[in-house]
Design a protein around this nucleic acid. Structure first.
Lengths: 209, 209
DNA sequence: TAGAAGATGGACCAGAAAGTCCAGAATGCC
DNA sequence: GGCATTCTGGACTTTCTGGTCCATCTTCTA
């Protein structure tokens, strides 16, 4: 049941997904019950199973997709325009701010664990998110190369992969410890690494916390 | 009940923790029941609650500590002797190999989610693990500095934090996608970043957080 | 050796939560 | 307006699982 036939149905379905996302973010996937979601969204049990016939797993998967879409959307328009040091810096700040605001909860990570890595669905969502994210980072790095701001010898794909890993790990550590130091370190070091290849041995000091 | 009075009791307790760790790694925390653990370890319900009076949460926490201890132990002795490029490379290989073998399951991450970040216990375990890990990385970097192989102006703590974040993220991505590319990229880029500072007496300005 | 403390087995309980079902209201379509 | 489809409400069932309880066996100690 990907789409409901009527407008009313679609609205209800959307309400369920969004409300479920809220509940999951607040309580954690492991502790959220269908009844919590039901009461939060003002729906009945039958509605939940009407729109998600395969039950909780299907709903969780829908929420995962919903959250995954937000991840990249929240980084725009900066992520799409990484063609100057300034825009990289702005993007960096947005990422830090977004995850600091999100607090100590990773909707996607926990959803993934709950639904189970075996399910192709959940894996596909995460894989695709990572692919797009990394691709946009790489695109930004190539833009810098085109502007002569970064060495053309830089292995863009590997560097983008490393930066993405740093972000993910920084977020993960922040979820665990409540401290965003590692996220900032990963971002700043990653950007510094780019700058270091610019060919200028002169130092820069543009990073702020 | 941190320790059992008799040797037999201690052995049973250890058997429970180790068996539980196996079950959790195989099935995932979300799907493992006390009965699974009970049958795997050849114990009875009463034994479980005899050694872990606070029930499942306490057992999970003990398993988390058990797994956390293994993480650093598995990286030794390399992690403790990061004083040459060769040893860094060996350590890098061990980390990749360890996590590739572990497959698509992160015992610690899922345990953390299940027990709940609110609990001080689980947070403390992860925080302490990250602290020690990062400290050993920083120690290795300082050894390189002492040998003149890395610029003395390098902000060791920040670089170590970034590298740690990269590892965590690389592992997380590997869990999700089954691909260790990001982990390798994070490690290799991190080490390359160190090497790049080798001949630079003039330093980038370190950034404090 | 006898009593106490610890360890073990397993039946039993209680609550929770996913999922089912059907009646009835709303809505869209001709 | 009337029929068909969709949507909604909520009671009910069923299964699962964490946790309790107590009787019994083993081990240690005085």
């Amino acid at each position: 049941m990907p789409d409901a036939p009527t407008a009313k149905g679609r609205a209800t379905r959307a309400r369920i997904v969004e409300g479920a996302a809220e509940v999951l973010r607040e309580q954690g996937v492991a502790f959220a019950t269908l009844d919590d979601i039901r009461s939060r969204t003002g729906t009945s049990k039958s509605q939940l199973f009407h729109y998600f016939p395969d039950g909780k797993d299907e709903l969780l998967l829908a929420v995962a997709q919903f959250e995954a879409d937000r991840v990249l959307a929240d980084q725009q328009p900066h992520l799409g325009r990484l063609d100057s040091w300034e825009s990289w810096q702005q993007w960096r700040d947005v990422v830090v701010e977004r995850y600091e605001r999100q607090g100590d909860h990773c909707p996607l990570g926990s959803l993934f664990l709950q639904v189970g890595r075996s399910r192709p669905g959940s894996r596909a969502i995460v894989t695709e998110l990572m692919r797009q994210w990394q691709q946009q980072l790489a695109h930004g790095m190539r833009a810098l190369q085109a502007n002569g701001m970064v060495s053309s010898a830089l292995d863009v794909d590997r560097t983008a992969a490393a930066l993405l890993a740093g972000i993910q790990g920084g977020v993960a550590i922040m979820m665990s410890t409540g401290d965003s130091t590692h996220l900032k370190a990963a971002l700043d070091t990653g950007i510094a690494h780019l700058r270091a290849t610019a060919g200028e041995p002169t130092a820069r000091k543009p990073v702020r916390t």
